[in-house]
Write a protein that binds this DNA or RNA. Structure first.
Lengths: 350, 350
DNA sequence: TTGTACGCGTTATCAG
DNA sequence: CTGATAACGCGTACAA
């Protein structure tokens, strides 16, 4: 096993320890002061062309690269932000992450992926990164009911933008979400027009504003009877809830409206396994419009959420202020959703 | 618009600028030295309980949190690594990222998401993070043909692990990949057993070792005639290549073997649009086994790659050495793949 | 055009 | 049990 630490041998020091060249090493080798080296590289002030050339040559020879850490310390910011999400393998959050990464990259920021797996402890640890100022800001798209207190305290002191999910009591914040209420409304109208009168609504965890908004929009537009069951956004929970109702013989509905596509997939599977036909016997509607939604059989009718734009907008908002060192004012972006009518919905069975 | 910079007011300084409390502030307010404050918090050496209590009280009052940046500067490492991938919205890389994030989190490391969109310039910028030592290491899963020279130079000096993809000329490295050759072999055997004799093979970009390995395994096990077309791993390219061959009337094959599931989806769509039945007229096989593969119609026969494990293994390998400050020795992990036989393959049409 | 000196916030070392 | 000091590597105000 090789045991040498990383780094490069200093030209002027044959000690046993290799370490990366510092600005001092360059200065010494070029016969100038560190200040001059700094200015040659930054262009922040004019340097004699001969001197500059000599410095550059030494920089190349030693392979000197300024330590961004030291620069950050002195500058008071790291040009890195965090993106806190529950599950990167969920296509919705992957799209959101892509939007966030694009926006960050555009402004020269790095993005730390904070994947919480819905784990509060893990979320806490990641939030510590903003308190210890390792990140300049945080895009919070937890997806699970966040601890209001903690978040509230943090939002007063650090730049945090909310993506995809609002948080009760934090109205004065940077927020980018899809129009969940409109999404619910679109589904409600669609099912009503198809003649459905009794619908099973599978929700996500309680306490999510987006869920409330969706339900509100849906119930109001639908007007019929709504049976509600609480799940956790995972495919398994959609399957479990529907299977249980079927066993108990209590699924007297003609349609299922799931909180997201994954749960809709689970419901679909449970219905099919029970010998029911979708949409012949029962219609199914999802939410998110992840890629698989259009590819499953039957193709899923669902609400398209602009996941990429939600991530991009939240991040761009955040950085607009972070990059100026200002406290962001409240600012809410509600992005439009659309209903994708596919093969999983049909007129209500008589 | 609020214009106050972030931070907290110092208790002992009523200057106009709010800034976070530093260890000096705490020390002054508690009447001890910064050294003592440091040790109270780290527990690195015993501190008189009375003194410690006083310090802790001040820490709470001022809301002091150690600046991780300064700690990193002094420690010489940031406890953050980078994950360089082409596209986080590709389910394969999302899974890989999840594995990498889990492994990093387990060892107390953060993970910077470097999404390149197959863009060389963007990749370069991200690789700069390791040269400037903002990250302690990098997991490289580019997926596109990387610039060998650049990577080679970097790998000699910095801890880099290769995930999912080997790189020619870099045998002596940390590598975790799926067994692509075995994957190709499994597909070859499967199609041969089904009686196929002419297969269209859609590959990814040239110059990828994984592609060569797959093709080698496939061709050897299959034994029949293989027509090859080069794509770029995207759904559109699968569609385009197949559609073009169909137009030209040159698709005299009974099966298509795509380089990944996305391209297989594209091929599937093109075939269906041309009125061909899958697998009745022609069989289709993918690679990766992303979630949508089992949900598409017909369900896709494909090679399951352990994306999560590839990410997790590569990262764990990297960190095992990074965390000790050692140069990693060469070490290759080849993870097993399995063939998922689903509805998109059938005996060759006569 | 260039250099000196200091601060950023922390921890290790060495001395009491 | 505690403190003073140096060092990490950089940028820059100030001085020459």
């Amino acid at each position: 096993m090789t045991r040498e630490p990383y780094g490069q041998r200093r030209d002027d020091d044959r000690s046993a320890v290799r370490r990366p060249a510092s600005i001092k090493d360059v200065a010494a080798a070029a016969g100038v002061s560190p200040t001059t080296v700094s200015h040659v590289l930054s262009g922040n002030r004019p340097v004699n062309e001969q001197t500059a050339a000599r410095v550059r040559s030494v920089v190349n020879r030693l392979g000197y690269v300024p330590a961004s850490l030291a620069r950050s310390l002195q500058a008071g910011s790291t040009s890195v932000i965090g993106l806190l999400i529950p599950d990167i393998s969920n296509a919705f959050f992957a799209e959101l992450a892509k939007g966030a990464e694009d926006a960050a990259h555009d402004l020269g920021y790095g993005l730390i992926l904070c994947n919480t797996e819905f784990d509060a402890e893990r979320e806490d640890r990641y939030l510590g990164m903003i308190r210890s100022r390792f990140v300049d800001g945080m895009v919070y798209a937890s997806g699970s009911a966040p601890s209001r207190r903690r978040l509230e305290a943090l939002m007063g002191k650090f730049p945090i933008a909310l993506a995809d999910e609002e948080v009760d009591g934090l109205e004065r914040a940077l927020i980018a979400t899809a129009d969940h209420e409109a999404g619910g409304r679109l589904v409600g109208e669609h099912l009503r027009e198809l003649g459905h009168r009794r619908v099973l609504m599978l929700t996500g965890p309680r306490g999510l504003r987006s869920g409330v908004a969706r339900a509100t929009g849906f119930v109001r537009a639908f007007g019929g009877h709504v049976v509600e069951r609480v799940g956790d956004f995972k495919e398994a929970s959609g399957h479990r809830l529907v299977a249980k109702l079927l066993e108990e013989g209590g699924l007297d509905c003609t349609a299922v409206f799931a909180a997201n596509d994954l749960m809709a997939f689970g419901a679909l599977a449970a219905l099919t396994e029970a010998g029911l036909s979708v949409p012949g016997d029962i219609s199914v509607v999802g939410f998110d419009d992840i890629r698989a939604a259009s590819q499953i059989n039957p193709p899923l009718t669902t609400v398209h959420q602009p996941a990429y734009d939600v991530g991009r907008t939240a991040t761009a908002q955040l950085l607009q202020y972070v990059s100026r060192g200002e406290v962001p004012p409240a600012s809410r972006h509600t992005l439009p959703v659309t209903l994708k009518v596919r093969g999983s919905t049909a007129p209500a069975a008589r």
